[in-house]
Design a protein around this nucleic acid. Structure first.
Lengths: 205, 205
DNA sequence: GCATACGGGAACGAATGATTCCGTTCTATT
DNA sequence: AATAGAACGGAATCATTCGTTCCCGTATGC
C-alpha cells in the first residue's frame, strides 16, 4: 500500500492527532486551525467528517474510550490498593481525557453511543473508587463525584508547553493524593514549582 | 439626590456588578450581555467606558485591589499562623478575584497601573506565604507560585449556581489545605459532594 | 416651558468561521 | 499512453457575531 492510499491513511491519523491537540488546547478553535496543524487542506477534513460536530463527537468518543481503558487497567491491578488507585489517577491525568470529554460535551448534541460510553466510564470510575474505599486507603468523606471534579481542576492547569503542563499537573495531583490518602501523609512533590516568569508571561496576549 | 442623577449613579453600580458577573462566568462574553444583565442599554455602557477594553481593565484593576485588600487583612492577623493562612485562602476564594484577573489578563493590553498592582499583589502573596512557612505550618516543598496555581484550579470549579459553586470551591479548598498543612491531617470537608445529576447536567448545551 | 444630558436599542461594518466549490494532482485501470 | 475518478488544497461564500456609532425619545433641572 503506497502512494495516494497511503497518504490518505496517514492523513486520517494526522487529522485526528491535530484535532486532539487543537481542541484540547482550545475547545472553541476553528476547524481551519485543525487543518493547518495537520498540514492538510480543509477539504481533507470534510471528506472524512460531514461536519465539525461529527469530528467533535468522534474525539469525545475516543476520549471516553481511552478513559474506560485506563479505568479497566486499574481494576485489573490487584497489587497494593493505594498504588492501584494512585496509578489510576495518574493514568487519567496522562491521558488528558477530561479536556476532551467534559469540556467538549457542552458544545454539541451527544449521540446515543456517547451516552452509553459515558455511563460505562462513570460506572468504572465508581468501581475504582469503591475498591479504594473498601481497602480503607481513601479518606471516607470524599465521593467518586469528588474525584471527577478533581480531575477537571487538574485539567484546568495550563502553563507553558505540553510537557511542562503535564509536569505541573502531576505535581498538583501528588498534592491532592496526599489529601485523599488515609492515613494522611506528605509525599515529596514531583517536578519543579512554577517560576515567577512562567506566571508573569500570561499577562500579555 | 434623585431623578436622573440618581439613576445614573445607580447605573454606575449596576453596570459594574453586571460586568463582574458576566465576565466572571465567561471572559469572552459580548458587551451586549453585560448591558442586558444590568438592565440598561448599550449606550449606558459606552457613556462610561470608551471601549470594552477599558471596562475590562477597570474590572481587572478592581479585582486586583480586592485581592490586595484580602492579603493585607491576612497580614494583620497575628493569631494562630495556620488559621491566618487558611483564612487568607478562604478569603481569596470568596472574593473570586482569580476569575477576573488572570483569566481576563490575556485578553487585553495591561496598563501601567495594572502592572504595579499585580506586582504589589504578588509581593503580598509572597509575604503571607513566607509567614506561614516561617511559622512551620506549611509543608516546605510548596512555593508561593504553587499557591497561585491552586487558586486558579479552584476558580475553574463551576457547577450549578453561584452559591453551589462557592460551596464546592470551599470543599476542595479544604481538601487542598489538608495537603498543605504540616503536620498532615484530615479535616472534615464542608458542603455536600456533587451529585451525579449535577455532573450529568453538563452533557447537554 | 425648554434645552439637554441620558439612555434605549436599531444600524453599521469588520471579523470570524463553517461549509461549499472548483481546479489540480496523482493513481490505477484500460 | 490515455483517462476516470479519488483526494486535495485553498479561495469563495454565506451566515453569524460583536464592537461601536447614531438617532431619537424622555424627563429632569433650570
Amino acid at each position: 500500500m503506497s502512494g495516494r492510499k497511503a497518504q490518505a491513511a496517514r492523513n486520517d491519523e494526522l487529522i485526528l492527532r491535530a484535532a486532539r491537540a487543537v481542541f484540547t488546547a482550545d475547545p472553541g478553535a476553528p476547524i481551519a486551525a485543525v487543518a493547518e496543524r495537520a498540514g492538510v487542506g480543509i477539504s481533507a477534513l470534510y471528506r472524512r467528517y460531514p461536519s465539525k460536530e461529527a469530528l467533535l463527537q468522534k474525539l469525545c468518543g475516543d476520549g471516553l474510550r481511552l478513559y474506560i481503558e485506563v479505568a479497566e487497567k486499574a481494576l485489573e491491578d490487584h497489587g497494593d490498593p493505594w498504588e492501584a488507585f494512585a496509578g489510576y489517577m495518574r493514568g487519567i491525568v496522562d491521558a488528558d481525557t477530561n479536556s476532551l470529554t467534559i469540556r467538549l460535551a457542552g458544545t454539541f448534541q451527544p449521540t446515543e453511543e456517547l451516552y452509553r460510553d459515558a455511563a460505562r466510564a462513570s460506572d468504572l470510575a465508581l468501581q475504582v473508587y469503591g475498591r479504594a474505599v473498601e481497602a480503607g486507603v481513601l479518606r471516607p468523606d470524599v465521593t467518586a463525584a469528588d474525584i471527577a471534579l478533581l480531575f477537571e481542576q487538574l485539567a484546568s492547569v495550563k502553563l507553558g508547553d505540553d510537557e511542562r503542563t503535564s509536569q505541573l499537573r502531576h505535581r498538583y495531583l501528588t498534592l491532592m493524593l496526599d489529601a485523599l490518602r488515609r492515613p494522611p501523609a506528605h509525599r515529596p512533590l514531583p517536578g519543579p514549582p512554577p517560576e515567577d516568569m512562567e506566571l508573569a508571561a500570561r499577562w500579555t496576549p
